[in-house]
């Protein structure tokens, strides 16, 4: 199955969405990424029981941290699907990209060089 998803999405593989830490998401935005999202397994079907719930909590936490800082919290998101759902993966990638395009560039980016 060859599926197309937006080229602007950079994928980082992790063994479980529960591996993604608050700092990974925060640093992505700090370093100028326009958005960051986690794609985890469906709720209730984590091999490690609650990895994806932890991931969801972390996304919510990072979102609140960004709001504190003055950046749209919605630049970080969580999506869930099963491993067989390639088309859904591509659809989420497009949805996230469209959403971030609508928000515009990360406001940090114009300041990072300065």
């Amino acid at each position: 199955m060859r599926l197309e998803y937006p080229a602007s999405v950079k994928i980082i593989h992790v063994p479980c969405s529960g591996k993604v830490d608050v700092l990974h998401l925060l640093r992505a935005i700090q370093k100028g990424a326009d958005g960051a999202y986690i794609v985890g397994c469906l709720e209730g079907s984590c091999h490690f029981n609650e990895g994806n719930y932890r991931a969801k909590e972390r996304v919510q936490y990072v979102s609140s941290l960004l709001e504190e800082v003055g950046i749209e919290g919605d630049r970080v998101r969580m999506y869930n699907l099963t491993s067989g759902e390639g088309p859904t993966f591509a659809a989420y990638a497009k949805e996230m990209t469209d959403h971030i395009r609508a928000l515009g560039p990360n406001p940090i980016k114009s300041k990072v060089k300065s």
């Binding site: 700090q30 800082v69 003055g70 950046i71 406001p107 300041k111």
Partner: peptide
Amino acid sequence: NAELDMARKL
């Protein structure tokens, strides 16, 4: 530190 860094840049 990540938060402070971003907020101060902004």
